[in-house]
Design a protein around this nucleic acid. Structure first.
Lengths: 252, 252
DNA sequence: CTCACAAAACTGGTCAGACCAGTTGTGTCT
DNA sequence: AGACACAACTGGTCTGACCAGTTTTGTGAG
């Protein structure tokens, strides 16, 4: 196999395995080349491969960075092919929540089991940020909190799967925030869920963490199902990332 | 924007817009470089980006080719970027099995709950075929059985996720068949699992079906982990694109 | 004339060193 | 202390060479 591919795999493995955190800077091309004993061309080819796969971002004059899966940052990828299924099909939202219930439950379980000191620190940071912010504008932070837990599971396959559902998940999170947060009793419950989940993960109680995470997603799902049945109107989140504009502006 | 990226976008658009058909050969790097008036390095970087995105495949001495979109039959979802993580990294196999445990459990649960007459017929057919065949050559049928159950879950998102893991799953199924089936007591347990799972789904007992499906995957995972720890040698399944293409055709 | 086999002419893979182009830190001069 | 220019980073591109597989070609032996 080509050297450049071996290197790209090695780097990806390192990143997904938690060796490198999102937004973290990767050593410069010249450093990598020297350290791995290969030419800079090979390093560049490997990095382009990771770029194509959306694992890293490269900025002229600054360096290469682990792509954050958080929405605001990048997202030059085309809208998820599943996205179109979602538009006008609220059922898909519930299908997704159904799958999320399992996967987030497992992620919470594994995170409670495997989180390192660093992971716990990240999770704590994400949780604090979530707590300290206006609930109406925190869909992103909500997602970030769940994401931190997923990454602490140290299962690259799980991370990849949830990442590939990223766009849709963001929509469900936004939908739940937009629809549920305005109702006080709902918001309180959700906040309590988050706190319980946070504590269970930090306290390294896998079974409890899993149960709470699943109950949380289930609760959101049920609540939205009820709202749809009763009121009939879910607040629709416009499918419009528009971040590629933002992206090119930031980079040009 | 960097020249290499402009070129990769241009080529991708060309390919996706039908200018180039799958399996078709792309002009050589030197030709492209000359034709587009840039250096070969830029061309190579652009091609690596497309490679990372799964749009093309490159073969030493032969050239670059438009990737056949067959693997994963992904009308949805990007071509599994996970595939390569598996090669040479047995740990990823266990990561995948960890995720499978949850997803197949859920699929079994939902299948038992929602399967229609037609679904049950398909599942029965897949099960019979599995039963009547030489266990040493039935990795495909094994996979087909599990697949029939997944499809009966009637959750498009779940189907999509498992479908995008299809190639890797095929490998784990093959690995388990190759490693576990030769041991009689293992094979018997697996056969029993299949039968119990089949009966629970047909009998519309979701909780039981889920429990069995999860136990099944867990059992396979544990058994392989033990084998790796003891004997130290898992039979490695050669990663052979052509055969997996064959398989996905057979299953689609 | 045909077949076999080696050489040539492709393909991609890697290397070296140079230079351009953004970004950031530093130090000097006012 | 502040402003500004100059290093010293970073990635982006170019050149030309050579290595390593694959395919074509051409020539010699039968």
């Amino acid at each position: 196999m080509a050297i450049s591919q071996e290197i790209s795999y090695r780097l990806e493995r390192l990143i997904l395995d938690g060796g490198l955190a999102p937004e973290q800077k990767i050593p410069s091309e010249r450093q990598l080349a020297a350290r791995l004993g290969v030419s800079r061309a090979v390093i560049r080819e490997a990095l382009h491969e990771l770029q194509g796969r959306g694992v890293i971002e490269t900025r002229h004059g600054k360096g290469s960075f682990v792509a954050s899966m958080v929405p605001g940052a990048n997202e030059l990828g085309e809208p998820s092919p599943l996205m179109h299924l979602f538009e006008g099909h609220p059922r898909t939202l519930f299908d997704l929540l159904e799958v999320r219930e399992q996967l987030e439950g497992q992620a919470a379980f594994l995170a409670a089991q495997r989180a390192t000191q660093l992971d716990r620190h990240r999770i704590t940071k994400a949780f604090r940020a979530l707590e300290d912010t206006d609930p109406l504008t925190n869909a992103r932070l909500d997602h970030g909190f769940h994401l931190a837990i997923v990454e602490a599971s140290h299962n690259p396959v799980l991370v990849h799967v949830l990442n590939s559902l990223k766009n849709m998940m963001l929509l469900t999170v936004q939908a739940s925030v937009a629809n549920l947060n305005p109702r006080e009793e709902m918001r309180n419950k959700i906040v309590r869920h988050h706190r319980q989940l946070y504590e269970a993960v930090i306290a390294e109680k896998p079974a409890i963490a899993q149960k709470i995470a699943m109950a949380h997603v289930r609760f959101v799902s049920d609540a939205m199902r009820d709202m749809e049945k009763d009121g009939g109107t879910l607040i629709r989140i416009p499918v419009n990332p528009e971040s590629s504009v933002e992206h090119s502006r930031a980079l040009t």
